[in-house]
Computed example of a mutant assay.
Amino acid sequence: MKASYVKPFIVALIIIIVDQVIKTWVRMNMYPGEEIKFLGERGMLHYTENNGMAFGMELGGDWGKLALTLFRIVAVCGIGYGMVYLIKRKYHRGLIMNVALIFAGAMGNIIDSTFYGLLYQTGYDGKPLGLFHGRVVDMFYFPLITGNFPDWVPFWGGQDFVFFRPVFNFADAAISVGVILILIFQKHYFKQEIPEEPTPNSEMLEE
Rank of each mutant, 00 (worst) to 15 (best):
M30C: 00
T24E: 15
G40L: 05
I22W: 12
V136A: 06
G105W: 07
L39Y: 09
V137W: 01
F142L: 04
D19E: 01
V137E: 00
I180V: 15
L118Y: 03
L13P: 04
F164D: 09
F103R: 05
L181A: 14
Y91F: 15
F9W: 06
D112V: 06
L119W: 07
K90N: 14
A100G: 09
M44L: 11
M44A: 02
S202Q: 15
I73W: 06
A12H: 04
R165P: 14
L129E: 01
G40P: 05
G82E: 11
N29M: 10
P8T: 03
G130D: 02
M97I: 12
M44Y: 07
M57Y: 10
H92N: 15
L183T: 09
H188P: 00
P150W: 08
Y5I: 13
E196W: 06
A174M: 09
F9D: 03
E58S: 05
I111V: 14
Q186S: 14
P154F: 14
Y124G: 13
F132C: 06
E203C: 12
E35T: 15
K90V: 11
G94T: 08
G64W: 08
G147F: 10
Q192S: 07
L66Y: 11
F132N: 01
V21L: 14
Y141K: 14
I111S: 06
I194W: 01
K2S: 14
K2F: 13
G130E: 05
H188G: 05
P195C: 09
N51E: 14
N148V: 09
I175G: 02
F38R: 07
D125M: 08
F170W: 12
R135N: 00
F9L: 11
M30H: 01
K90I: 02
G157L: 01
E196S: 11
L205V: 13
K90W: 03
L183V: 14
G157P: 13
E197H: 11
I180W: 06
Q20D: 11
H188L: 09
L66K: 13
A100P: 07
F9H: 02
G60A: 11
Y31N: 08
P128G: 04
F190S: 02
T48S: 08
A12S: 14
N51V: 07
V162L: 04
F103Y: 15
Y141C: 04
L13F: 15
L119N: 04
Y5W: 09
N98H: 03
Y91K: 11
M30F: 12
F168G: 08
I182V: 13
L66C: 01
D160Q: 15
K187Y: 11
V167N: 00
S202D: 15
G134S: 00
F164R: 06
H133C: 08
N50I: 04
F163E: 07
F142M: 10
L118V: 00
P143I: 10
Y124M: 13
